[in-house]
């Protein structure tokens, strides 16, 4: 755990950035971009997550062990998403028997 003292300015800047991203999320919901709506929403939410993890959760200033723990969490989330989506993506691959 880092003992570094973080200036409140960094938190306020982050807070501002998160509010801007929130407004972007709402704005993007009014645009009709087809399938890209989902991609855009996910990109914005990933940016928000990264800001929270790096600054509010202090991962940016943490040691190697903290980075490893955070990385493991992300990897495990990746396993959950990859194998679950693997099911949904491959469901249509097998042709349905016609009667």
């Amino acid at each position: 755990m880092s003992d570094e003292i973080i200036s409140p300015r960094i938190y306020f800047k982050n807070f501002g950035a998160l509010i801007v991203l929130l407004l972007l999320t709402i704005g993007a919901a009014y645009l009709d971009l087809g399938p890209l709506n989902f991609v855009l929403a996910m990109l914005i939410s990933l940016t928000k997550t990264a800001l929270i993890a790096l600054f509010f959760m202090h991962i940016r200033w943490g040691g190697k062990m903290l980075h490893l723990a955070a990385g493991a969490g992300l990897l495990w989330l990746g396993i959950l998403l990859a194998l679950t989506l693997g099911d949904y993506i491959s469901r249509g691959w097998l042709p349905v028997a016609q009667h």
Partner: peptide, 22 residues
């Protein structure tokens, strides 16, 4: 142990390919 959970769902509507992998 984290990558085998789909074997609980072989007949639950999970894709056959996913089932084979699990």
């Amino acid at each position: 142990g984290f990558v085998v959970w789909g074997h609980h769902m072989f007949v639950a509507g999970q894709s056959v390919y996913s089932g084979m992998m699990f």
